[in-house]
């Protein structure tokens, strides 16, 4: 699983907002181009990005292994025909190039994921998106990071409890209903306790945010992000 790991790479030292600018800029240009020459350039860019973030190529590919299987299906299905000659390789070229750019997009975002802690991402959201919406999104992102392992443990416990009571022998709709009812009611019970705790601790629209600093490399990264985004128009 590809997640944040503490390190001292250049990517780890960058502000999350500048890393997001590069990632979004790259996404814009990658989605706009499927020719071979831009894809070669994108490949070089992504390899440098992974190296800057200290992510191994195989590690990143392994992290997205499930997505890669579905991605590979597009060119494979495209080259199949319902009659002779059954397989037309030339039909797979365009989907293969298009799928490859999606792979590059996944690898590019791996650099952000590996180098940015949840706390910084939350602060970036709250500082970038204005108003109460930005505050709620930022705080909500922090809560999601915190509560996913808890809710996952709840779901696994529910499934274990069902299994020891031979719940696995029940029909699929009944099993999904039970998981849904129990999972949602437990999550809402946790949410109600959480809301009480947040109000007791003066949950406010203007909390003190973690400090973020924009240094010279961040301005360079932002310029790179804008350049990449503009290159989508070429």
């Amino acid at each position: 699983m590809l997640t944040y790991e503490p390190d001292d790479t250049l990517a780890h030292r960058l502000d999350p907002r500048s890393k997001l600018a590069v990632t979004v800029g790259f996404a814009a240009t990658a989605l706009a181009h499927t020719d071979v020459v831009p894809l070669i350039a994108f490949t070089g860019f992504v390899l440098v990005g992974l190296a800057v973030a200290g992510v191994g190529l195989w590690q990143a590919l392994y992290g997205y292994r499930f997505a890669l299987v579905i991605l590979a299906a597009a060119p494979v299905v495209s080259m199949l025909t319902l009659g002779a000659p059954w397989i037309v390789l030339s039909d797979a070229i365009s989907p293969a190039l298009a799928s490859y750019r999606v792979l590059l997009l996944l690898l590019c975002s791996a650099a952000y994921v590996r180098s940015t802690p949840a706390r910084d991402s939350r602060a970036a959201v709250q500082r970038t998106i204005p108003g109460k919406l930005g505050q709620l999104l930022g705080m909500g992102v922090g809560l999601v990071f915190r509560f996913v392992p808890v809710v996952l443990a709840d779901l696994r416990q529910i499934r274990r409890a069902m299994a020891v009571r031979l719940g696995t022998e029940r029909g699929v709709v009944d099993r999904v209903r039970r998981i849904g009812v129990l999972g949602l009611s437990r999550s809402f019970a946790r949410a109600d306790r959480l809301s009480l705790a947040m109000q007791a601790r003066c949950f406010s629209w203007n909390p003190t945010l973690p400090a973020l600093s924009f240094s010279r490399p961040d301005w360079a990264a932002c310029a790179l992000g804008i350049t990449l985004a503009l290159s989508a128009l070429l």
Partner: peptide, 14 residues
């Protein structure tokens, strides 16, 4: 933003 909550525990804008 990096929580491993997409299909297969993946994450990221990609």
């Amino acid at each position: 933003l990096g929580a491993p909550i997409f299909s297969g525990g993946s994450s990221g804008l990609g």
